[in-house]
């Protein structure tokens, strides 16, 4: 009885905090009022004060996490809407994102090896831009650290979700297609979910980038990382 009640309470708390911060963001239009970020900070604070551990919270909110899968599926709709436009750009998108995947893997791996000097962490950080299940699978294959991969993925998602559009506008990348592609590549589904509210173009190109970069990374990372090791 107690568990059902606390589960209900924790879910309500999460959804209500999210709704209130979404309302605040719509009202004040401040990008840092990101509902996801505010809810996460609020929930962590409340759990710490009330001494509820993460495991209990995770169990209570498992249906919310279960909704992640259908949430990713619905991104097929904006993708369908942009399909004819995407078809013309198909080749250049795949080529660009292949270079981007090689770029992110090598700079993340090399910088981490240089600064932290632990190969397992370097493997984890080099996979942070792609969708969690694939990144974790490759992490295990390459003897990385799954906990760090999961942590890095969330953070990479947040940076893109909160400052991605702001930064791209600042460096004069204003086209919705370029913004969508960039944020999908760097910040996977978390970034894409946030920018999907801006336009169908953002959503479609973000979703496309998630699929293509995950596929390319899964193919090239197992070869690239041993090669980078030789270079060092």
């Amino acid at each position: 009885m107690m568990t059902i009640l606390s589960a209900l309470l924790l879910c309500t708390l999460t959804v209500a905090t999210y709704q209130v911060s979404a309302l605040l963001q719509r009202r004040y239009k401040k990008f840092w009022l990101n509902p996801m970020l505010i809810t996460i900070i609020a929930v962590i604070a409340i759990l710490s004060i009330t001494h509820v551990d993460y495991h209990a919270y995770k169990q209570s909110t498992q249906w919310l996490s279960a909704l992640l899968e259908p949430a990713v599926v619905i991104l097929g709709y904006p993708l369908f809407q942009q399909l004819s436009a995407i078809r013309k750009q198909w080749k250049r998108i795949v080529i660009l994102l292949s270079w981007a995947a090689a770029f992110v893997i090598s700079i993340s791996y090399l910088i981490t090896l240089y600064l932290i000097e632990i190969p397992a962490i370097a493997v984890s950080l080099s996979l942070k831009s792609i969708t969690t299940p694939i990144a974790i699978a490759i992490t295990e294959q390459l003897a990385g650290n799954s906990a760090i991969t999961a942590f890095a993925i969330i953070l990479a998602g947040f940076f893109g979700a909160i400052w991605g559009v702001k930064w791209l506008n600042f460096i004069n990348v204003t086209s919705p297609t370029a913004q969508g592609l960039a944020i999908g590549t760097a910040s996977h589904a978390l970034g894409t979910a946030t920018i999907s509210q801006l336009s169908y173009q953002h959503a479609a190109y973000g979703s496309l980038a998630i699929i293509i970069s995950a596929t390319i990374t899964a193919v090239i990372a197992p070869y690239m990382i041993p090669m980078l090791d030789i270079l060092m």
Binding site: L96, L125, K128, A156, F159, L168, V173, A178, A182, T185
Partner: peptide, 18 residues
Amino acid sequence: IIFITTFLVLTFVGVLYQ
């Protein structure tokens, strides 16, 4: 590292695709 590399990738893809 996560912060810097994320913004480098955003810039790389955004600028080149535009």
